[in-house]
Design a binder for these strands. Sequence first.
DNA 1: CTATGATTCAAACGTCTGTTTGAAACGGAC
DNA 2: GTCCGTTTCAAACAGACGTTTGAATCATAG
Lengths: 217, 217
Amino acid sequence: MTETLSPTTEQVDTREALLDAAESLFSELGIQASSLRAITQRAGANLAAVHYHFGSKEGLVRAVFSRRLKPLNEQRLRLLEACDLTADDAVEQVLNAFLSPLLRMSRETPEGVRDFARLMGRAYMEPSEEVREMLLEEIGEVVRRFTEALGRILSPLPGQELLWRLHFVAGAMGHTVACSHALEKHSHGLCQPSNPDEALRFMIPFLAAGLRAGTTP
Amino acid sequence: MTETLSPTTEQVDTREALLDAAESLFSELGIQASSLRAITQRAGANLAAVHYHFGSKEGLVRAVFSRRLKPLNEQRLRLLEACDLTADDAVEQVLNAFLSPLLRMSRETPEGVRDFARLMGRAYMEPSEEVREMLLEEIGEVVRRFTEALGRILSPLPGQELLWRLHFVAGAMGHTVACSHALEKHSHGLCQPSNPDEALRFMIPFLAAGLRAGTTP
DNA sequence: CTATGATTCAAACGTCTGTTTGAAACGGAC
DNA sequence: GTCCGTTTCAAACAGACGTTTGAATCATAG
């Protein structure tokens, strides 16, 4: 147990400590496999604190996501509105508007927020219906806006093919943030997915080329 | 060793029934969330049957994967060797050699094997280290061979960028088979990921275009 | 038939899970 | 000082989990 309390303000907020501990544990072990006992222990809090502050484990899960997702989505929409949809690199601009806020979240908090990116990627494939629906409800509006923008840029593309391609884009993005650690290990350090700039530099051209591929016969 | 088969009596093999039940439940709820009690109940078997036939839950998981993976990987390698790596569509050929065996597995068993594709996609992102390592150990050789083939086709591509792009390919593929049901629902039936031909028709051009994109500066 | 090995079965094991409880400790207002 | 709402705490709850056990059942060979 290496939890250190800041000397002056000590543990200002048990609530926040629980969210941090849950976020990191969720991203390491998954949501289901993270027990409240492990979470409260890492947070240096009592087991019952979760139910006092969040009502239930599901309430905690919800709070973990919405704490990060609200500012994240605002930033995404802000960047999307700044895109020039008529430019040659419009696709790249839009992809960057969606991706870079998530990948660059690590600026604010040294380690805590990288966890969230991995957690997001994993939650996207979570078998649990509840988690998936909660997530969709939280980012549904953003997805709709980005879908519309890309649909306009690629305008002669049939709707069916657009949806398929966005599905592939979502898969590549989710997998990259969820399993970045695997790529780093498997490439023996040649690839460094923990570097947001490197990840964007490789991911955006790949996805843009796929999105712009000639219509299939 | 192997029991004498008696094709007349009811459930020919409890072992096989357990594998089928586990496969479908794993793909629906995930591995962790599928209890032995739920599995044995769906299989119409006794709870202790799992430990009698497989020794433990982990043994069952291993058996579920290797039952499908062995023939699947053989077919992939057979198709890979039939590819013309100098052809214009060499990338498409290789992608097809890797993808189509998994997507077309549904031929043999009507429903049971579609479950396996979803399970494969999900297991690829599973937080559990044990599952991921077991899977990598089972398909490691195949991945190596396909990586080498694609590296040769895209030959001037730097190793770092090749690995990044293969990471994206893996993510798009995994997500597509794991969450095909989500795409079908979200597109209101416009996309039909349960149709292997349609999935291949859209996935291969997208991935090939991404793989062939100009080298990033 | 009996004997033998393979398979099934109901019941229990100890451990872990999310949740609840009621009392203890806190901190500012009067 | 007392009071009161907020927060923490140790302890226990009922249920689900993977696993084990020992006896019952089955099919076949001698």
